[in-house]
Design a protein around this nucleic acid. Structure first.
Lengths: 230, 230
DNA sequence: CGAATATATTGTAAATTTTACAAATAGCGT
DNA sequence: ACGCTATTTGTAAAATTTACAATATATTCG
């Protein structure tokens, strides 16, 4: 069943971006409200067909920026989904990307055909069009395994954070709980964060110390990898 | 810079398969000798443009089977490569897949436009066309990290194997050496292999015990994952 | 101002795992 | 019988992990 080249150069490629944030002890994901067909008037992952004159990785950043205003977000490729019938308009392969950002550092603004853009707690994500629920599930699992191997948790937290906050982050992502003393011992023994000298304020209880991560150590560990088991 | 759908449905998708084997203490990869343009008369990864009426994952198996005769090999997706100029005939995105097989259990036979198919020791792979060297590098790194987290080493070994063989396999893939006593202690403590009762024969030295892996435990650990650190 | 409230912070002993290290063993070939 | 070659095995010290609960500190309330 050989066929000529012509019949094969008829596919389109899209990217779908899973952008995670963390806020109020909840893991959140950024969705847009679609103002274009197909699946107009649905919440969906920010994704779009890409132009064929741009590299794939570039396209992910461009699409995200077009739809949500998020500029210069480094996106990492996670998986490509290519079921025959996944798109009603033809054969569209979609390459999923993901990113972790500090919600408070960015302002999301829908643009292009996105009518809205909003953060959804990961457990309150509605039914999504295409295979977006499957993509999100895939991304969640990847995040789970990555956070245990690389010091990526800090990408989701503000510059200064408390040990309780980072423990909550780990617990939210891994859907488990840790012993506080052991969690802190382990985390501090990695030498990737230090006491910033600052303290929490405006809280109705004993204020916590604020920590920050050590960029150098962090980058180094990102290469090496590590195992965070508790 | 909005553009219509027409201009976007002009891409082609290929799959490129990285099939690893292990033989004579060498990690090997399966290459084909291309008998078709572009890059005719070059050794390359077994890959081809896919027909647009098949699911992506299916296509990987079909392409491998067409070119090398390897039938029913489960292929896992690893990454998609999409630089604009990676293919001389147009915009082609390639999805890389990989598989681990027991060399002795299969017979590779070139077919379709593949003129030859042969195993190359990983360190003797020639310069490859397209971005195939980059893809192979990516696959090697993935294998390295996967073998430390999942019990996949057995997929490369015959049914019965010695502890020395599996240590050699780990050492070849991870490009390191292990202390024999500690390696065995660790491996055996995982309870994924057992003494088969059989012994090596026809060797000019003390014959080694032959082990086999325990399928059940193996499958279970594949889900859980583990950490193999030494 | 003292007491109640709400989290933050910290230590230690026991168990387990990891590490470093070398001598004895078992077939085969001569 | 002896030599060759690769296989097999144990242990003590060090490091890490685990289980577990009382004290500290700023705020708020009466």
């Amino acid at each position: 069943m050989e066929s000529g080249f012509e019949s094969k150069f008829k596919a389109a490629i899209s990217v779908d971006n899973v952008v995670f944030g963390f806020d109020n002890n909840d893991l959140k994901v950024l969705l847009i409200y679609r103002g274009a067909e197909p699946y107009k008037e649905c919440w969906a992952l920010p994704g779009d067909l890409i132009s064929l004159d741009q590299d794939l990785d570039e396209s992910a950043e461009i699409v995200l920026q077009n739809l949500t205003g998020l500029d210069n977000i480094y996106m990492e490729q996670i998986h490509t989904f290519g079921r025959v019938d996944r798109h009603p308009f033809g054969r569209v392969f979609t390459v999923a990307y993901f990113a972790l950002i500090k919600i408070e550092d960015y302002n999301v603004k829908p643009s292009s055909w996105a009518e809205e853009a909003a953060w959804f707690p990961i457990n309150e994500v509605p039914e999504l069009p295409f295979d977006h629920n499957e993509i999100l599930e895939y991304a969640k699992n990847l995040l789970k395994s990555k956070i245990r191997r690389q010091p990526i948790g800090f990408e989701l937290l503000p510059k200064y954070f408390t040990l309780t906050e980072i423990q909550n982050l780990y617990e939210a992502i891994l859907e488990t709980t840790f012993d506080t003393r052991n969690f802190r011992k382990k985390l501090l023994s990695m030498n990737i964060i230090i006491d910033s000298g600052k303290m929490q304020s405006d809280v109705a209880h004993r204020p916590a110390k604020l920590y920050k991560y050590i960029t150098k150590k962090y980058l180094q560990l990102q290469q090496t990898g590590f195992t965070f088991d508790l």
